[in-house]
Write a protein that binds this DNA or RNA. Structure first.
Length: 266
DNA sequence: CCATGTACCTGAAGGC
DNA sequence: TGCCTTCAGGTACATG
């Protein structure tokens, strides 16, 4: 489920909801969902700030960090005594000393909460975030030349540039007019530059739309996103391309369902 | 280096 | 109604 825009939406909401709160307890209900890699106690630590790198959420605490990846179906729902929330699929709960809590719901149990001493070493293999100012046109263009993978696989791999997933890769390649099977290194500098601008535009407008909900994604209040209304190829297989009318094709590439217009993307 | 398959999980949807 | 297969926003790991 969640890619950069969805994680960014949740991060922004949690920033105003739980920054400054003090953790009373973290309780897992599915053991694998919470991985404690620190000797230090969580109880009594304050949430100092909330950040994000790629699809990872980073809670900076007084002494340690909580790092959360939602994988396919993870949700972080904020709960107070005044709102009621279904307890279905709750895999872990973070309790605060004011009685409120953050609920980690995850139907498929792929998501993880890590408690670690250092965030940077834990995330060192994750590439620069796609919306980080350090990622610019010339950096992106140079990165492409490093790999002969298909551009689809390149963008999905989180080690060069992070935050993109299956939906936004397909949407960006469509808007840039690039066939998903083209090898990254053989894309011209000119068209790599265009791709980068399109990529950022697609991500930014998805953030404005509070993310894309296909089925499971919900924000911290349990609400769906709105960006699914603006998808041009993802999930539109068999329907006419809204630029040229050719039916949108769906193939398997890099192990994932891949949607594209065979006419517009070369 | 790269592509492919499998594993991790649950549930929805489609074919028969 | 039920049974079976396939698929799903992600990633780690094994195998040629």
């Amino acid at each position: 489920m969640p890619e950069l825009p969805e994680v960014e939406t949740v991060a922004g909401e949690l920033r105003s909801l739980i920054t400054g709160k003090v953790i009373d307890d973290v309780r897992p209900f599915w053991d694998k969902s919470f991985q404690n890699k620190s000797q230090r106690p969580l109880t009594g630590q304050r949430i100092e700030s909330i950040g994000r790198k790629g699809k990872y959420l980073i809670f900076r605490l007084s002494n340690t960090f909580l790092i959360i990846h939602l994988r396919m179906t993870g949700q972080l729902i904020y709960q107070t005594n005044t709102n009621n929330m279904s307890e279905n699929h709750v895999r872990a709960k973070i309790y605060f000393d004011d009685g409120s809590s953050l609920n980690f719901k995850d139907m498929r149990k792929f998501g993880r909460i890590y408690h670690v001493d250092h965030d940077e070493s834990f995330l060192e293999k994750v590439g620069c975030d796609a919306l980080d100012p350090k990622m610019d046109v010339s950096t992106f263009t140079k990165l492409l030349t490093l790999s002969r993978m298909s551009i689809k696989a390149f963008l999905l791999s989180q080690k060069y540039i992070s935050g993109l997933g299956n939906i936004y890769v397909d949407e960006s390649l469509f808007r840039a007019g690039i066939h998903p099977a083209v090898s990254a290194a053989e894309i011209s500098a000119q068209s790599a530059g265009e791709l980068f601008l399109v990529l950022q535009q697609v991500l930014r407008s998805a953030v404005k739309n509070m993310g894309t909900t296909i089925s499971d994604y919900r924000d911290a209040f349990g609400n769906s996103g709105n960006n699914q209304r603006f998808l041009k190829v993802y999930g539109r297989q068999g329907l006419p391309c809204n630029v040229c009318g050719t039916p949108v094709k769906k193939i398997k590439l890099a192990g994932r369902g891949t949607h594209f217009c065979p006419m517009c993307q070369t």
